[in-house]
Design a protein around this nucleic acid. Structure first.
Lengths: 198, 198
DNA sequence: CCTCATTCTATACAGTGTATAGATTTCGGA
DNA sequence: TCCGAAATCTATACACTGTATAGAATGAGG
C-alpha cells in the first residue's frame, strides 16, 4: 500500500479500472460511464486504459462480463433454492429482481450499443447465463442440440421473452400506469406472477 | 421550389428536419442520429433546429412520436384485418414485424435514453399505441379503469411483455442460436408462434 | 414605415473517443 | 549483472458531439 508517491506503473490497474467503472455505473448510470471518467476515478491519465482494454467497447464488454456472471449466479441460486414454487417462476423473479436491483448493469448488459460479444470473456459469461435460462424452462441441454423438441424450445423462448420484456418495460416505466391501478397496488412481484399466468 | 439561392428563412424547416432525421435513422442507424448530422443533411447551420425542437431530446422525441403513430397504425391495421387467426396473435406479429422492418425506429422508440415523454406529441402517440396493445389483449378499456379485472390486466401485461421481449431479443441477435437450430430453420414468425403458445 | 419577435448563422466552450509520440518501468536472455 | 525489448503510463492533438451566446436577416402587426 504505497501511498506517498504513486509509482509510474499502477501494478493492478485492470481490476482497479473495472472497479471504478462499476462504481460509476452504479452511482451515476450508464450515460456517465465514459472512458475518461473511469480513468479519472482510478487516478490515471485518460489513455491508461488502452493497453488493458483497447477501446471503450473493450472496457464495457469486460464490465458486462462481470455483470453476466453476477446475473448467472443469481439465476442458479434461485433455481437451487429449495422452497421455490417452480423453477421457471423462481428464475423469472430472479431475472426481474436483478433488473430492478442492478438496473444500470442490466442496461449495460442488454441495451448497450457498444458491447463486443466476440470477446471471449463476454461471450462465455453471456452464454452461461443463456444456458441457465434455457435450463430453467426445461430445455435441458441448453445447447441447441439436434433433438430438443420444438415445443420445449418454444416454451424456453417464450419464457425468456416474457421475462425479458417485463423487465424492460418495467425499467422504462411503461408499466407504471398498470402498477398504479387499484387492485395492483404497486406490487411488482404480484404483477409479474399475473403476467406469467396470463 | 426555389433553388438558385435559398432564402435566409427556410420556411418549412421543422418537417424538413424531421424528414432528414428519419432518413439518417433509417440509413445509418440510431448512433448516427445527431443534431449536427440532421442539420447538415437539411442544409442549415447546426443551431438551426434549436428554435423548433429546443435540444436533442426535443428532436428525438418528435421523431419518436412519428414512429409511434406508424407503429399504432400497423397494430390497428393488423387487428382490423379480417383474415387474422386471433387478435392477440395478429397484433403480436405486427409488433415484431414493425421491429424487424423499422429496427432503428423501434430502437429510438423503446431504447433511446433521450426521449422526453412529457412532450405532448410523444405522450399522446405512445399512449395511443399502448392503448391499442391493451385492447388487443382483451383489456377493453385500455385506460386503467377501476374495474378491469386483475386476470385481464395480467393477460394484457403478459402479452405485451412476451412480444416486446421477443422483439428485443430478436433485434439483439440473442435468438440466432435458436433460429439456427434444425427444425426451426430461421423462421422468425414460426418461432414467435411457438413462443406465444409456450 | 417602424418595431419587434422569430428564424437562422457564426462563434465559442466543455466534453467525448482515439491516434500518436515519448517517458518510465519491468522483464527475459546473454 | 547488464542490456535491449516489451509493456505500461503520460502528454498532446484532432475530429466530433451538444449547447450557450451574440448577432444578422426576415416576417408580422400596428
Amino acid at each position: 500500500m504505497r501511498d506517498v508517491k504513486r509509482p509510474y506503473h499502477h501494478g493492478d490497474l485492470k481490476p482497479a479500472l473495472l472497479l471504478a467503472a462499476g462504481e460509476i455505473l452504479r452511482d451515476e448510470g450508464l450515460p456517465a460511464l465514459t472512458l475518461r471518467a473511469v480513468a479519472r476515478r482510478a487516478g490515471v491519465s485518460h489513455m491508461a486504459p488502452a493497453p488493458h482494454f483497447g477501446d471503450l467497447s473493450g472496457l464495457l464488454s469486460e464490465l458486462a462480463a462481470v455483470g453476466y456472471r453476477m446475473f448467472n449466479d443469481a439465476l442458479v441460486r434461485a433455481q437451487d433454492y429449495p422452497g421455490a414454487r417452480s423453477i421457471p417462476n423462481a428464475t423469472a423473479h430472479a431475472y426481474v429482481g436483478f433488473a430492478r436491483a442492478e438496473t444500470a448493469m442490466f442496461l449495460l448488459m442488454f441495451r448497450s450499443e457498444r458491447l463486443d460479444f466476440t470477446r471471449p470473456a463476454l461471450a462465455e459469461a453471456a452464454g452461461a447465463a443463456s444456458r441457465s435460462l434455457m435450463r430453467s424452462a426445461g430445455a435441458a441441454g441448453a445447447e441447441p442440440r439436434p433433438a430438443i423438441g420444438l415445443a420445449a424450445l418454444g416454451r424456453a423462448v417464450g419464457q425468456w421473452s416474457v421475462v425479458h420484456g417485463f423487465a424492460m418495460l418495467l425499467i422504462d416505466g411503461r408499466l407504471e400506469d398498470v402498477l398504479a391501478s387499484p387492485g395492483c397496488g404497486g406490487d411488482v412481484a404480484g404483477l409479474l406472477d399475473l403476467a406469467l399466468a396470463g
